[in-house]
Design a protein around this nucleic acid. Structure first.
Lengths: 201, 201
DNA sequence: GTATAATGTCAGTCACCACTGACAGTCATA
DNA sequence: TATGACTGTCAGTGGTGACTGACATTATAC
């Protein structure tokens, strides 16, 4: 019965993440979480000591950390359209993997020391990576880029908006999919960044 | 003392919106709300009957409704850069005015019948208005627009992302302001929509 | 077969919280 | 000065929810 201990904690964490992301930390009872995990409430407390600690443990896995950095250093082809597409996809992959954790983080209500800071550091890192990418592309003469930081930021905000929209509004816009959005957004940036001289009609 | 009744309800609603947007519906007690409004808990219940009803009443003001439609029919100059700028500004004006209500809506936890539906209808309306605008601009020969719906959607998502980012991350990106973002985003769309022939380097 | 570790059951504690009733105070108006 | 509309105080009630302790149960390992 030694290996069951980890399995039990895992079940509880999954149930907690599921329920809390739906109904909020204060909207779920430890009883409900235990039931959803097919375990007794007592077991929950034996493993985590408190509801708050259970949440903290659940949120610890919230670290895509190095993944973006590695992606940027290994997967880029220095071909704008291609790269922006794969960056977008990677972004949504990562975000969707942590979908429920992000939902919890947004609903917040809960104050875990340092958590917000840790969370906000990811998009800052992405902004840096993306900015550096644009700068290099500019140096290579492949794009015309006057303000790389703001352009990277704008690109990110579009992705972020689409993700949050999908997260909480689901399929609010009939006939519009995330894939289509990514393609159109990349097209717009490619067109905008590969103009030789600004067109003045 | 007749006019005080409305003033009292107003105070309570304001306090409720402030606190609930911060800590979530289940994270605030009626006691706290009453204190924040400098009124007794009893008065709160005399006015609204229940905590839930207080929230519902607070959320009823959440209707920018016609404002966007009127703006689109009256304030546009049919000059792309100018119009996209003023649309962006109007959007953020409206969103910021209802900042706290939107925060409550996102944290959700609360299930008020029909509320979510009512809320989601606003961005859908904006999408329609913006799409129609692009179509007309295309017909006027002022832009080259292959896929107006997706382009309007992309423009919206960028605004939405920037708003949500500002809402919950505050000043996470030092040196980047909302104003700068709006300008850069508009520039990107203008460049992208006013290319006569796609440049292939 | 017995020790050990993990879980379940059950009854219960304690604090908090939405909400109430009874009574008293305050102020404007007639 | 009396009435009425509004608010405050206070002492409650009933329910819920996080968390505990004592004891029984199961499975595994030696």
């Amino acid at each position: 019965m030694r290996q069951n201990k980890q399995g039990t904690a895992e079940k509880l964490i999954r149930a907690a993440v599921d329920l809390i992301s739906e109904k909020g930390y204060n909207g779920v009872t430890t009883q409900e979480i235990a039931n959803a995990a097919n375990l007794s409430e007592k077991t929950l407390f034996r493993h985590f000591g408190s509801k708050q600690k259970l949440l903290e443990t659940s949120l610890e896995r919230f670290q895509y950390a190095e993944e973006m950095r590695i992606f940027f250093s290994e997967q880029l082809l220095w071909e704008l359209e291609n790269d922006l597409l794969s960056i977008s996809k990677k972004y949504h992959d990562i975000m969707n993997r942590d979908r429920k954790l992000i939902q919890i983080a947004i609903k917040d209500e809960v104050h875990i020391p340092g958590f917000k800071e840790r969370r906000l550091q990811h998009p800052r890192q992405l902004l840096t990576l993306l900015t550096d990418y644009l700068i290099t592309m500019n140096e290579k003469g492949k794009i015309v880029c006057s303000n790389p930081t703001m352009q990277a930021f704008t690109f990110m905000m579009a992705q972020y908006g689409a993700f949050i929209n999908d997260l909480e509004a689901g399929n609010n816009y009939p006939g519009i999919s995330l894939k289509q959005f990514i393609q159109e957004n990349v097209k717009i940036f490619v067109r905008s960044l590969t103009i030789s001289s600004p067109s003045t009609p």
